[in-house]
């Protein structure tokens, strides 16, 4: 019955993390509604958490093994389990003490296939949790994201500007058209409905906002606002503060990929000289990816 009864050696995974808040931030960024089921996949490379909605929106959080202080993996194959994302995040959040860096140990599976968490900071105070897992009922939608042509169609925009633009596009209507054109190099977000709103990012005008731009022919696709909104709605404050870029890529068939980087670095007070480019050890970054399917009903989605 007790947690210590399991031999840690028998577990598929025993890992330790020294920045719980970073993990909370990373997982929160894919939490777009209250009740979400997530699938967690373990491997020797790290932990991947996947959430999706109505086969139109999928998000993945990659926590590579380099983020962990210790990563003991001893499973055959790749264990997968289902867990309530909200519960997992709320639970992890209790381990995060503001102003302290707290170290936790994560173990899977427990004696009853639970996910086990415990704090390692002090001998006289211990926080522990056992989260019930499920056999994952969804086969995650494994979309093979392929580039649309020989050169990728992508742009990188400051995360805060992207969030602001998408937030502003809420009022005109339920679908948003994204257009990339090579001459002059620019990205346009357009919402039509009760009214219309168009937001242009022009490469030569706002080089500080639109950090990178690759496009050799004009493309235009429409996406449901609520899915587009989900890609930035819970972006953690730390990402907005660091204000690195978020990368958007349009793949074959108009599939939109949105990537954010979330820092899971140990908060250090003495070395807070993150330089202007927001450079941090690449190994201490969690990668967040969203895949959004385009709307198919209209013939607007096309390459020209």
């Amino acid at each position: 019955m007790s947690t210590s009864a399991t031999e840690p050696e028998a577990a598929d995974l025993v890992c330790q993390l020294d920045n719980v808040q970073g993990m909370v931030d990373a997982l929160t960024s894919v939490r777009w509604k209250r009740h979400q089921d997530a699938v967690v996949e373990l491997s020797e490379h790290g932990i991947v958490l996947i959430v999706e909605e109505s086969r139109c929106l999928q998000a993945k959080v990659y926590l590579q093994r380099e983020l962990f202080v210790r990563y003991g993996y001893s499973a055959q194959g790749r264990p997968r389990f289902g867990v309530s994302l909200g519960l997992f995040v709320d639970c992890l959040n209790t381990f995060s003490v503001p102003g302290h860096s707290s170290t936790i140990e994560i173990q899977y599976p427990g004696p009853d296939m639970q996910l086990l968490l415990k704090s390692l900071d002090s001998a006289n105070a211990c926080i522990y949790a056992e989260i019930r897992t499920r056999i994952p009922d969804m086969v995650s939608w494994d979309y093979n994201f392929e580039p649309a042509g020989s050169t990728p169609l992508s742009f990188t925009v400051k995360s805060s500007a992207l969030k602001e633009a998408i937030d502003d596009l809420e009022w005109p209507g339920s679908s948003i058209q994204i257009t990339l054109q090579p001459v002059p190099p620019s990205v346009t977000f357009r919402g039509d409905g009760h009214g219309n709103l168009q937001i242009d990012f022009k490469y030569y005008v706002n080089t500080d906002l639109l950090v990178a731009f690759h496009c050799d022919h004009q493309v235009s696709y429409r996406y449901k606002y609520k899915f587009l909104h989900a890609t930035t709605s819970n972006i953690p404050a730390s990402v907005i503060k660091d204000n690195r870029g978020s990368k958007l890529t349009i793949g074959r068939g108009g599939m939109l990929k949105v990537q954010h980087l979330v820092s899971v670095a140990r908060p250090s007070i003495s070395h807070s000289h993150v330089d202007s480019a927001g450079y941090q050890q690449p190994s201490r970054i969690a990668y967040i990816e969203f895949f959004v399917k385009p709307e198919e009903d209209e013939a607007t989605g096309n390459d020209s």
Binding site: A125, C126, I127, Y128, A129, E130, I131, R132
Partner: peptide, 9 residues
């Protein structure tokens, strides 16, 4: 679904 606890000794 969950057991969450803290012990202070």
């Amino acid at each position: 679904l969950i057991t969450l606890g803290a012990e202070f000794r």
